[in-house]
C-alpha cells in the first residue's frame, strides 16, 4: 500500500519538475514557433550552477533557496542572450533557429563536462525539509511535497501572469498571431526575449530544485529534453494547461514504468505519445503544429 502511495507522490513530484521545465518550453514554442532544443541544457546548467553555489565557491556557501533563485537568474540571462545574439539573426527561418539551439545544446553539454567533470554531483536536501510527514499509515517525504507545492504556486503564478497582466495579454496575442500582434503595436521582439528568459529561468530553477532527487550529471540534459518534448506533444504547444496535464501524465508513466518495467520505462512514454499523434496530432489542448 505504502509503495503505491509513495510511487504516486514521486510521480506527482516528477510531474511538477517537468511542468516547470515544459511550461517555458511550451510558451517559447507557442510564441516563436520553434522547439528550443537548449531547454534540457538550461535545466542542467541551472542544476550545476546551483549545486556549485550551495557547495560553495571561494568559501561562501549559499542557502539552498538563495542559490536556486540565483542560478535561475544566471540561466535566464544566458537564455535571453541566446535569443538576442543568435536567434534574432535568423528571423523567419525557424529551421535554422532550431539547428542553432541544437548546436548550443552541444556546446553547453561539453562546457559542463569540462567545468564540472564526469562524476555525478549530489545536491543535499535543504536541512529544514529533510524528513517525512506521516498521515495514517502513509509516509510522505517532506522535500517532495515541497516541490509539488512550488510547482503548484508557479503554475498559478504563470496563469495569473498570462491571464491577468498586460504582459500576459501581449504574450497571448503573440502566441495567437504574431503578425497581428506586431500590427497593433506590441513589440514582439522584446516579448521574445522576455519569454525566452522566463522559460530559461523556469528550466534552470527546475534543474536545481530537482537536484536533491535527480542529482546532477553529464547527460541530464539529454534525459530531460525528450521528456519536455513528449509533454508538449501530449499537451499541445503553447498551452499552459496542456503542459500541466502532460507533465502529470509523463510523471506517472515514467515513475510507474521505472518501478514496474525498468527496462522499458522509456518506451512506455512512447505509447501515449503515439496515441495522441494518431488521434489528435495537435495535442490534447493545443492547436495544430505549424
Amino acid at each position: 500500500m505504502n509503495f503505491w502511495i509513495l510511487l504516486a507522490v514521486n510521480s506527482i513530484t516528477f510531474g511538477g519538475l517537468l511542468f516547470l521545465l515544459s511550461a517555458g518550453f511550451s510558451l517559447i514554442f507557442g510564441l516563436m514557433r520553434i522547439p528550443n532544443l537548449t531547454h534540457g541544457s538550461l535545466f542542467m546548467l541551472g542544476a550545476y550552477v546551483g549545486a556549485t553555489l550551495i557547495m560553495g565557491i571561494l568559501s561562501v556557501q549559499l542557502d539552498f533557496w538563495l542559490a536556486a533563485v540565483l542560478s535561475a537568474l544566471v540561466v535566464a540571462a544566458f537564455g535571453a542572450l541566446i535569443e538576442r545574439l543568435l536567434l534574432r539573426r535568423l528571423p523567419g527561418e525557424p529551421l535554422a533557429q532550431v539547428l542553432v539551439t541544437l548546436g548550443i545544446s552541444f556546446m553547453v553539454a561539453d562546457f559542463c563536462l569540462m567545468v564540472w567533470g564526469g562524476d555525478p554531483i549530489s545536491v543535499a536536501t535543504p536541512t529544514h525539509l529533510v524528513g517525512f510527514v506521516r498521515y495514517g499509515v502513509a509516509v510522505f517525504p517532506l522535500y517532495r511535497l515541497a516541490i509539488i507545492g512550488i510547482a503548484a504556486v508557479v503554475a498559478v503564478a504563470l496563469w495569473l501572469l498570462l491571464e491577468r497582466t498586460r504582459l500576459g495579454a501581449m504574450i497571448r496575442a503573440g502566441v495567437d498571431d504574431p503578425d497581428m500582434a506586431r500590427v497593433v503595436g506590441i513589440r514582439v521582439s522584446q516579448i521574445f526575449t522576455i519569454v525566452f528568459g522566463l522559460g530559461a529561468a523556469l528550466a534552470g530553477f527546475a534543474g536545481i530544485i530537482g537536484g536533491p532527487i535527480l542529482s546532477v550529471y553529464p547527460g541530464l540534459d539529454q534525459d530531460m529534453l525528450p521528456l519536455a518534448l513528449v509533454v508538449v506533444i501530449l499537451g499541445g504547444t503553447g498551452s499552459l494547461l496542456g503542459s500541466f496535464v502532460g507533465s502529470l501524465i509523463v510523471g506517472f508513466l515514467y515513475n510507474f514504468g521505472q518501478a514496474l518495467l525498468p527496462e522499458l520505462a522509456y518506451f512506455i512514454l512512447f505509447l501515449p505519445m503515439l496515441l495522441v499523434l494518431v488521434l489528435r496530432p495537435q495535442g490534447l489542448f493545443g492547436r495544430q503544429l505549424p
Binding site: 525557424p94 532550431v98 525528450p226 518534448l229 505549424p290
Partner: peptide, 11 residues
C-alpha cells in the same frame, strides 16, 4: 516542418 523535427527527435 518543425513538427517533423520534434517528432523525429522524440522517436
Amino acid at each position: 516542418g518543425i513538427g517533423f523535427i520534434m517528432i523525429t527527435l522524440a522517436l
